[in-house]
Each structure stands twice: as structure tokens, then as C-alpha cells.
Nucleic acid binder design. Sequence first.
DNA 1: ATAGATGGCATTTTT
DNA 2: TGCCATCTAT
Length: 795
Amino acid sequence: MQTGIDYQNELNPAQYEAATTLEGPVLVIAGAGSGKTRTIVYRLVRLVESGVPASSILLLTFTRKAAQEMIDRARALLCQRGMPALSEYQETPPLHAGTTTDYAGDYAAGYQPQPRTHAVSGAAHGLAGVQGGTFHAYAYSVLRLFQPSGMARNLTVMDGHDIIAALQHCREETKAGKGDKSFPKNQTINGILSKTRNKEMTVEEVLRRESFHLLPHTDAIEMLGRTYAEFKRTKGLLDYDDLLFEFERLLLENEDALAYCRRKHQYIMLDEYQDTNPVQARIAGLVAGLSPAAVTGKEKQTETFTGNLMVVGDDAQSIYAFRGADVKNILRFPDQYPGTKVIRLEENYRSTQGVLDVSNAILEKATEGYKKHLFTSLGAGQTPRVVRPLSDRAQAQLVASRIIELSRSIPPSQIAVLFRAGFHSYALELELNKLGVRFKKYGGIRYTEAAHVKDMMSYIRLVQNPMDYTAFTRMAELHKGVGTRTCLKIYQLVLAGDKAGVEKAVARFPGLLADLNFIDEHRRLNSTPKILCSAVIEHYQPKLEELYPDDFPRRLQGLEQFAQLASAYDALDLFISDLALEDPLQEEKEEEGVVLSTIHSAKGLEWEAVIILDLVEERFPSRHSLTRPEDFEEERRLMYVACTRAKKTLEMYIPATLYDKGSGGSIPAVPSPFVRELKPSLYSEWQESYTGGLVQKKAHTAPHVPKPFLPRPAGAAAPTLRPTKPVAPEHNMQEEGFALGSGSSTTTRPEQCGYCHHKVFGRGKIIQHLPPDKYRVNFPGFGLKVIMAAYITLE
DNA sequence: ATAGATGGCATTTTT
DNA sequence: TGCCATCTAT
């Protein structure tokens, strides 16, 4: 089939090379803003144009949204450039129907392949049937077709909340850490266990590396891990990590499954390869055709690799090491896949040179020496700004008014505020609400986490998997008088098939019996997700009205929206797993509004204007990164990712003080090393005054004159701005010790951090030197303290 | 055994 | 801030 696309003229030479190399192993090193998405989009079209069936293309990206966008854009390209011959395909045939041979039906006895894709489908023109999504979603889509050995028959994907609930259950059962205040919280346990798996290390290794204070609990955590694994196995539950490891095991143990994947997905594209972890890399290798021995590195592939595998990524943007991502995957790809064609996309089409200069400067200081230099032909553009509000509260007010100012010339949806951690934006959110500025926050509360949605989902999940204990608990405890014990008892009776026993136990709770019957009936009916959703809503509505008398209509509406969503699915389990893997309502949020996002969630996105908050030590770089140099390097790459999101306007905010909830007062903050090390010529410096507007600091002119500290009465108007630096005397250390742009500032790099002893608090980690004679020290069990040097002994 | 209330807490980043 | 864990009255 032919299109009028002129690949050579619409792409630059490197992009062209990447988009038109369809066979063999290919590594694309794509610098920030280098047109990576465009290249993948063109390659998708090119593949289809060359006669590759869309259904044999697998596109794995970091989020489903990313895959969706690429497929949509490819489809748009095809539509727009006319594939007249294809217009008769407007009515897309179901994914597995007709043209493609689907082997799963033959192999997986009892499991019929479902006629609707789980992940994203390119639902028009020649792209119908491209399978795209995340590794996790892909893993599930195959796992459900083949029965993994030793697993319950119906597999359910757990979401974050399920995981915590399951851990809690295991904890009660084993009495692990009972009554021990130093025992970590479920969240923490989950983090440790998950790290253990993603980094493929023992609990002890993980603890030794990043939380040595928990080392005394090593055995208990390991034991809890085993109990948790057994809990999941017997109940047919899969957490995020299980999806990957069970999938790998399936590919290694079940020849049919491996053959199915290899045969079906002959053209594989992996985006963000720098952020894959070892098991993901092995899965990719197995499906692409690498031998099991070569995948684990036991043996080296010596002949030219003949599978069609393209990986795309940027080692400088690797920001997920904390969850096991390993840059080595991308660095050694050519070695692992002999015959790899390496293509570098280097010209930046996103940002003006001023933005790139700052970005480059940040990367230059990286100790791991990623040699990258972004360039553009877009021109110098605006000079990035450094803004220094008096406090984090003032920062919120300044940013809010700046957003209003910017939105006079830029659509609000083209303005983004980025920060290191979700809670860093709280103050700004309050401020924006106060001013009536619309915003959408990425990484905020998922709609699926609302109580009524979870209630509804528990019924749906029980229809799919009667052993889903988390769902059972949720459903059963909706009834007054049913708690942990009763719940467990009934669950066991139900599983044992003891009908008489169940009826007896449930007799005291008539509503519960009705629920169980309802679930049984619908399991028998095998209804479509949409019909089931409607039925559940009707069944649950009385309870909804009882539980939420003030706002049940609104919640009901939300549930109906959910049922609408379900109508896109033919298979119940796919609907459930999609909800656990990614919030489907996220992308349907209104388009208007300023974007608030963690830097991690901002990956791959771009905006006209980008504001980075809280560029002070402890926040960014995060205090948790101060232990090991490699973590600090990851913070640097995070900063690089943040800066390279900006097209034209880049502003970095450095509050002089941070509110301290402990003391209720403000503590001085040290500007982030990432800004301190920038040459002053790369940015202009702006400050707050009491009279209005941001005022640019005149570089190197006015001598520093400390202004008296003028406390604002509570509830006073937002700070306005004034031309000189209003720094309170007690904060003058910033002027003296941490001037910006020195290029050689006293950075609290991790390698300079040591430990010290204090008579009362014991051993602590020195977080920061506060000249001339104080240290900020983190004492396990006591938290952060500022201590006079005289009272501690350095180690 | 359950439910509700209270008080103490620490708080990265995501599938 | 919201989320725990523990306590107390039924």
C-alpha cells in the first residue's frame, strides 16, 4: 500500500534512518526533544505501508497514554495523507478476527482469546491491531491466555491499595512486628519488598543500601514477604512485580506461550528503554527471539541477531533506578544484540537555546559523564529565570500570580509547574484554588481510589475471581456487624463450598447473603462488563444512598461514567486489570487548566512555560538521595528532565525558607546545587518585593544591603515585589555561604556527608553544614536537628 | 468481635 | 496533610 508520505523530506537524516530501518536490532539514542515520538510514529506508518500486518507490531511504552498518542498520531498521518484504498476499512474488524492467526485459542485450553484488545488498539485504517501499552499490561494480556503453573485459575491484577491491604492481612496473621513501634509501615514494607524484586536483591542487601536502621527487622520482613507471596498465589492475585516475573517464568516454562508471543509480535518497539529493569529487558529479549541463556547473560549471542527489535531511549534521562531500572540495559544493548544499528537523534526541536544551555550545563556536571550537547536552530529565546521568594508560602503566591500573568499570552494548558514530590505542590494548590485558577494535577488522587468506586469494583472483581480476598473483605465489611473475623470465617466457608455453613454464618446479615447470591448469579450469567456494571450499580445504590446521604447523586453519576467506560471491554478481567494498571479517567480530564506534575510524571511531555518549584536542598535534590552518589546523580538527571520539558519559558524557584511543621516556624533553606553551579550568564535573577511585580536583580551592581525583616501580619495580602533583596538577617548565610552562580559552591554532596555522635541523640547523619558553627543532622528516631558543632563529635 | 474515636505520625519518585 | 495504630465502649 502506498501513501504520499515523503519520509526523506519530512524527517531529518537520523530520524529517517530510524523510521525506515524495519529489520534487525536497532538502538535509537534520542536526546530530549529530538523528535523521538515523531520518528516512532513515522516508523509505525512505514511498517504498515511495507505490508507488515499491524497485529504483529508490539509497541511498549512507559504509560498507556504514550502508546495511545503514538498510535493516534500514526493513524492521523495515514488518514490525512490518504490511503484511499483503505477507506473501506473504516469499520475496523475486531483485533483477532480474520486476517491474523491467533494461536492462543489452540494452546490455552478453555481460554478463548477475547475479541477486544486489552491495551490500546489503533482502531482505524491500517493500524488496527497494533498492540501498545506498558510491559505490565502486555504481561497480563499473555498471562491470561495461558495458565501459569501453580497459580489459581482466574488471575486478578492488584492495585496499590490491594497490595497494602494484603500486607496488612499477612501482618495480622503472622503477628510480624506486632506492638513494635520501630517496625516499618505497610507502605515501607511494600517499597522494600518491591525493590527486592525489581533490583533482584535480598531484603538484607536492600536494607543495607538504603535503610540500614531497619536491618534489625530483616528476618521479619523476609518472612512477611514469603507470607505475602503465598497469600497472592493461593488467591489468584498478581501485584505489579508478579506480572513481570510470572510472565518471564511463563515464557521460560511454557514453549507454547513463547512460540505464541514470538510468532505474534514480530516487530517490537520499546520506548524509554533506559528505564527498563532487568526482568523487563529479559522479557523483551525472549519475545524478540534471544535464547534464554543469552537473555540472562550466561551465554553471549555471537551471531548477528535477526529479530526485529527497536529500542529507543536516552541514558541521560534515566530516572527510575529507584524501582530497579538499570541504564546498563540500554548501554550494553549493541553488545547483547550483535548487528545492532545505532542511531542518534541529536537536534532538538523543542526548546530555545537559552533553555538548552541550562539543560546542558546541568548535564555537564554529571559525574558519569553522559556526553550530550543539545542544540537547536530555534534561536536564543528568553533567558531562563531564577526567582528567590522569601519563603515557600511566598513562593506559592508568586508562582500563582506568575501563572496568571503568563496566561495572558500562553494558554493555561501550556503552562506547567513541576516538582520533586507530590506534596511539594500543596501550598500552590491552595493558592490556585483561592484565586480560582483551574489546574489539573498529575499523580494526584486516582478516581478509582474513591471509596464508592472501590465498593463497586469489589463486586465486579468477585464475579471474575471468587478468591479475591481483598475484594471479598471490602464487600463483606459494607455490612454492619461484619468485621475481620466474621469476614474471614465466611470467606473460608464460601471457598470450601459449604453452602449450609455459609447460610448459617450469614444468617445474621441478610444483606450479605443477598450480595453473595448476586455475585453467584452474575458469575453464572457471564455478562459483559457493561451489563455487569449496570447491575452492580443498581444493586449497590441503596447502600450508596445510606453511606453518602449528602452527595450520593454525584457519586452515582461517577459510577455511571464508569459503566460507560466498561462498555469498551468485552472481557471482564481486562477491564479490571486496566483499572489497576492505569487510571483510564486521567486522560479524560479537561484539557484546559495549568498542569501541576511531579517530574516523573512529566516525562516525555512538553510545555511552552515550565516552572520548577522548591529548588532547595532536602527537597530537590531529595533528602533521600543524599546517602549514595548514584542517587544524587539520578536527581541531576531528574533536573535535566525537568528543564528540557520547557519550550520557551523556564523559571526556577528557590524559596529562602521552608515551613517546618515540627516547630511551626520557618527554617532556612539552601539553594539546590543544581542552580548554584550554573554560571550567572545563563539566567536572570528575580526577586520578590513588597510593591508589585517581579523585579530583576541587577547583576553585580548594588552592594548587598540587608533589609530589616518585616514580618507580615497573619492573613495579610500576598507579598508583592521589590527591587532589592529582602533577606532577613538570620538568613544571611545564604548570601554569604551559598551565593548563586559562584560555579564552585560548597555543595553538600553525599560523599562529603559523614556521621557524628551526640550525647543525647546518639549517632546521626550529617545532612548539611550551616556555617559557621552549626550542622543539620538526621538522628534515627529523633529526626532532623540543628546542632552546634561544639556538641557533636565528628566521626 | 466490632465500631468509633483519639492521638501520634512521617511524608520520593510509579506500574 | 491524611493515614496509621491503638484504645475503649458496646
